[in-house]
Simulated assay, not measured.
Amino acid sequence: MKENLSKDNKKLLLIDDDPNLILLVKDYLEFRGYNVATAENGREALEVLDRHIPDLIICDVMMPEMDGYALVKHIREEPTTNKIPVLFLSAKGQSQDKVKGLNEGADVYMVKPFEPEELVAQVESSLNQIKRWEQGRPRSLDGAPSIKVPHNVELTPTEIKVVQLVAKGMANREIAEKLNVSQRTIESHVSNMLNKTSLNNRTELARWSIESSMA
């Protein structure tokens, strides 16, 4: 029986090109009560991120297709993902390697091999930091962080269509296909709406659209 230690179904994304490590770490984290999605490299991870936004990302550094540095750079540049904590895993344990990983945008740098309990402790520490930050934000009556946007926000007709589909849980790729435009166009609309509303991610954008009766 799995230990559900009050993890509140937190979603993790685990990225590594070593299938044995993926199997071991995924099984251990799921045993501790987390929901774990996986990817074998950075490009595959981006496809997962287009469909689901995790609470934390655990990422190998050296991978084919797209390495951890390139992936975290992309994550930090996108408004929908730039707040997600990233935990780097790497066989390189020199001080300069750790400094580079943290400077590139990772929040935690762990050296392989590592003890599973240490990984769990780092994951829980990162998630607890987010929880403490969220507890300091204004909250609505249902206990969720209240969605506050500037009072003079105006969306274009196309942006309204996009946010309505975001609220339905559709990924950018699916919205692009439905509206017969490129995925990059949809990403641009989402980014513009996040800038207009000062919201942090697609989840907040979707909730705002529902609360304001747009969706």
Results as ranks from 00 to 15, higher is better:
residue 75 I to Q: 00
residue 115 E to S: 08
residue 41 N to D: 14
residue 37 A to S: 12
residue 159 E to M: 12
residue 8 D to C: 09
residue 192 N to S: 14
residue 7 K to S: 13
residue 134 E to A: 08
residue 30 E to F: 08
residue 141 L to Q: 13
residue 119 L to M: 06
residue 34 Y to V: 04
residue 71 L to K: 02
residue 133 W to R: 15
residue 24 L to R: 10
residue 178 K to G: 00
residue 13 L to C: 06
residue 53 I to R: 15
residue 23 L to P: 00
residue 178 K to D: 00
residue 59 C to T: 07
residue 97 D to A: 11
residue 210 I to A: 08
residue 72 V to L: 12
residue 100 K to D: 14
residue 125 S to F: 08
residue 133 W to A: 15
residue 153 V to C: 13
residue 165 L to A: 02
residue 84 I to Y: 01
residue 63 M to N: 01
residue 6 S to H: 13
residue 132 R to I: 15
residue 44 E to Q: 11
residue 114 F to I: 09
residue 142 D to N: 15
residue 133 W to E: 15
residue 73 K to C: 07
residue 31 F to H: 09
residue 121 A to W: 11
residue 163 V to I: 15
residue 47 E to F: 04
residue 167 A to Q: 04
residue 43 R to M: 13
residue 146 S to F: 00
residue 48 V to H: 01
residue 91 A to N: 05
residue 143 G to M: 08
residue 131 K to L: 10
residue 8 D to Y: 09
residue 17 D to H: 04
residue 183 Q to T: 14
residue 84 I to Q: 02
residue 34 Y to Q: 03
residue 90 S to E: 02
residue 3 E to Q: 12
residue 14 L to M: 07
residue 184 R to T: 15
residue 2 K to G: 01
residue 5 L to I: 13
residue 105 G to I: 09
residue 4 N to M: 14
residue 16 D to C: 07
residue 27 D to T: 13
residue 202 R to D: 07
residue 203 T to F: 10
residue 195 N to C: 05
residue 62 M to V: 11
residue 188 S to P: 00
residue 149 V to G: 02
residue 24 L to T: 13
residue 2 K to F: 12
residue 84 I to R: 01
residue 98 K to P: 01
residue 160 I to S: 10
residue 119 L to H: 04
residue 98 K to M: 11
residue 184 R to I: 15
residue 179 L to R: 06
residue 203 T to A: 15
residue 89 L to Q: 02
residue 92 K to C: 06
residue 182 S to H: 11
residue 147 I to Q: 03
residue 178 K to W: 06
residue 33 G to M: 07
residue 22 I to R: 14
residue 113 P to M: 07
residue 120 V to C: 02
residue 1 M to T: 06
residue 36 V to W: 03
residue 162 V to K: 01
residue 68 G to Y: 01
residue 196 K to R: 14
residue 19 P to M: 06
